[in-house]
């Protein structure tokens, strides 16, 4: 079936099996490889994207539900060279090691900050439940607080 949606601000149409996970439509159909396959059953968060501003694990989200929606992936988190506060914080704190899970974490964090602009450690513990095997959680926590502070400095972000 033909599915039409906005992705990272651009209207796109794609022919796909409507039941196919949106993850693979994004990765292979639209060649946006920043959204990662991790588990295929919404258990790790590597494939986290935003659908109409809400975080969604795209490996378990049928493509047909994307019809008419506003999709954001890691490639669309920044505005050109203008980094999203979460990405800037990730750079400032030198968070990534292997880096594979990081787009999912950054998307989950961006969603968190939208709902809770000043998260406590407990908010972070409860809301950020993605998996990082390099176990960079310690720096991520710092980066999440940093991102909250950066976003406050630049409220336009």
């Amino acid at each position: 079936m033909k599915i039409t949606f906005n992705i990272n601000g651009e209207p796109r149409s794609i022919d796909t099996d409507g039941e196919a996970p949106l993850l693979w439509v994004i990765r292979d159909g639209l060649n946006l490889k920043g959204t990662k396959y991790g588990c295929g059953k919404a258990a790790c968060g590597a494939c986290t994207i935003h659908v109409d501003g809400m975080q969604v694990r795209s490996c378990s989200y049928p493509a047909k539900f994307a019809e008419g929606k506003e999709i954001t992936t890691i490639e669309g988190l920044s505005q050109g060279d203008n980094l999203h506060p979460v990405q800037q914080a990730w750079i400032d704190e030198v968070v990534p090691q292997c880096g594979y899970c990081q787009p999912g974490f950054m998307m989950a964090t961006a969603a968190l900050l939208k709902e809770i602009p000043n998260p406590t450690d407990e908010d972070i513990d409860n809301n950020i439940i993605n998996v990082c095997r390099c176990a960079t959680y310690y720096r991520m926590r710092k980066a999440i607080h940093k991102a909250a502070a950066l976003a406050k400095q630049n409220p336009s972000e």
């Binding site: 196919a20 996970p21 059953k41 986290t48 969604v56 378990s60 989200y61 939208k114 809770i116 908010d123």
Partner: peptide, 21 residues
């Protein structure tokens, strides 16, 4: 669920046979 991570992060309005969710 919570403010940011909610049921809808992983579950949709129907069973997903690809993922088993």
């Amino acid at each position: 669920g919570l403010q940011s991570i909610s049921c809808g992060t992983c579950h949709t309005t129907e069973n997903n046979d690809y993922s088993g969710v």
